[in-house]
Write a protein that binds this DNA or RNA. Structure first.
Lengths: 276, 276
DNA sequence: CGCAGCCTTGACCGTTTTCAATGAGGGTGG
DNA sequence: CCACCCTCATTGAAAACGGTCAAGGCTGCG
């Protein structure tokens, strides 16, 4: 393993990576073999802020993220940018466009990133020859679909704090799966991006972050977040739903929020935070 | 074509359908051939209210909807049912579970429905032999992914009325693609399901529907909706966003809502509707 | 006929949005 | 190297939309 974020490949600008690398990054090391070893893919670097995929562009390649972070978004007619997902290493980008042959969403790098280019037609053909690749594709697709489901759950939460909590936990766990610490995480995106993803105003994200910090669940430093009490955060995140047919045992009307207020020094449940 | 909703197959209980049927229903008639003709799949009827897929169940089959409507949902720990999608003819159900081999969400029929059973392993194998099937799978997957994106956009809308408008338009267009009228549509789900899907309270769905009717965009009868002014509804739906980085030229603060109030007899912009 | 679930409508309260201002951070150019 | 500008982030205050609670009407079914 041992892959550093994006500083490698100083020698050749047009780095390549093997099929086995892809499988490893996708968490399918077991499927790597001498069959997938010799297959190589071109890679492409995407500088922070640069665009990898333009919405509406003809789809001729899929992109496998090998390092970095990208945001996938849909631009509406009125110019509003709706973030649909954040892509990390191991994710495959562009599949949704395979339906109409046109990218349904755009993708921009949030930090210097690298992607392996998967020429669509050829990639499909490759899947016929080498089962491992077909499996990879299927897995990536299914995971993407599952992730969208998770995203819907985030949006389903009523309280803004809960949404933010779910978002943090979600990101932390993905990081953990990639081998990074799940306790400390660096948000590569702006508050505004998070807000768009969560479907709230960016000011609300700020406030929620502050609130979660006051509750004692996390610590916020710039874009760096430390999860002080992951278990507690998880408990908090699970409760509190409501729209529609909420069955949730939502605690007494104005009371709720933050059960474990015991050992923590800061502000109590809610009102206090607003006053402070 | 000529497929009636669900009343056919009175003779055999265990009806079957050919691969060509599937392709036709999926809108890929061109791919049907004497290769796909002889391939048959078992079908399964699902009575209104009956469950097709239980969340958490082991995934061994995918389901291709051949008639009817189903809701796909995720049940949270607290018992809250979050609707993720509504499936119509041509949709493939269960793909998201292919990642972990377990269904990530449940599916229940909203009306008597029929599905073709696609034994997962075999279905994948079939894809190798008959390209048309692989294409079908890819297409269904991509469409599903694209649809999730659309769902996110619905959730991204600020105003409840806009969400409902988008939902109606979304459903109408899907119906249209299936060959039905896009003007008149029958909502097979309860208000509560719509509410869950849209992330609002079910009372709000009711109110929004009434509002849209007052605006003159639609006519509501039971679960039957008539789109009186699809173009206008579309215009209305496009505007009005706001959370996050809203750039939208949202009309003057308290004024907005319903530009074309001219020819329409009913209530003006907003307040009036609340008073009535 | 009466119950049960669904839909609609009303009213109040609260969270979130919106508007507005300040401060910190990063980058560029003088 | 510092000044300056721009974007991002945080916080405050007021208004508004939507959620929750509550009740009544409707439909369909047993």
């Amino acid at each position: 393993m041992q892959i550093d974020e994006a500083k490698v490949e100083s020698p050749a600008v047009t780095a390549r990576c093997s099929g086995s690398d892809l499988l490893r990054w996708a968490g399918m090391e077991a499927a790597a073999s001498e069959l997938t070893d010799p297959v190589h893919f071109a890679t492409r670097r995407v500088r922070a802020g640069a665009s990898l995929v333009h919405q509406g562009a003809v789809l001729d390649s899929l992109y496998f993220v090998t390092s970095g972070t990208l945001k996938v978004f849909h631009m509406d007619v009125d110019g509003y940018e709706q973030i649909q997902a954040f892509m990390l290493r191991g994710d495959v980008l562009g599949i949704d466009g395979a339906y109409e042959g046109v990218h349904k969403s755009g993708a921009v790098a949030l930090e210097d990133s690298t992607v392996a280019i998967l020429p669509f037609r050829e990639w499909v053909r490759l899947g016929h020859v080498i089962p491992a690749f077909e499996q990879l594709m299927l897995q990536a697709t299914a995971r993407e679909l599952a992730r969208r489901g998770a995203t819907l759950q985030v949006l389903a939460a009523v309280g803004a704090e809960v949404r933010v909590a779910r978002f943090l936990l979600q990101m932390a766990r993905r990081q953990a799966l990639l081998g990074y610490s799940s306790r400390r995480l660096v948000l590569r995106m702006r508050r505004r991006d998070i807000a768009s993803y969560l479907g709230v105003a960016h000011e609300t994200v700020s406030r929620s972050l502050t609130a979660l910090a006051d509750w004692g669940y996390i610590r916020v430093m710039h874009r760096e977040i430390e999860l002080l009490d992951e278990a507690g955060l998880d408990t908090f995140q699970q409760s509190t739903r409501c729209p529609g047919a909420a069955r949730a045992p939502r605690l007494g009307a104005g009371t709720w929020r933050r059960p474990p207020a015991a050992t923590l020094p800061l502000h109590p449940p809610r009102a206090a935070a607003a006053v402070a």
